[in-house]
Amino acid sequence: MTPSPLDGPADGLAAASALRAMADRLEDAEVERAMRAGWSWSQVAEALGVTRQAVHKKHLRRLLMAQIELRRRNGESAF
């Protein structure tokens, strides 16, 4: 039996997948916004509830591409 692609679990599973994608996009946008506002990596990590290393690894490349001035841990400009 092939379940319907609409209704029941299909709607719920699709929602789980869509929310995950939306959460990823939201994180990208908000990390970028925070860094533009001068937040440090540690502050962003704390707000997200993850490690500084995790945020760095996930977002550094994109933030460099966005030409955002990034702060080092002691508050000085990193670039």
Binding site: L6, D11, G12, A14, A15, A18, L19, M22, R25, L26, D28, A29, V31, E32, R61, R62, L63, M65, A66
Partner: peptide, 26 residues
């Protein structure tokens, strides 16, 4: 419409694109 219906299942609406706009990797 599929996206709208899917999000509605979770009680959500699609956010304004301008609110979740991040720089794209090239």
């Amino acid at each position: 419409e599929e996206h709208r219906r899917t999000l509605a299942f979770a009680g959500m609406t699609a956010p304004n694109n301008g609110l979740v706009e991040a720089t794209e990797l090239e």
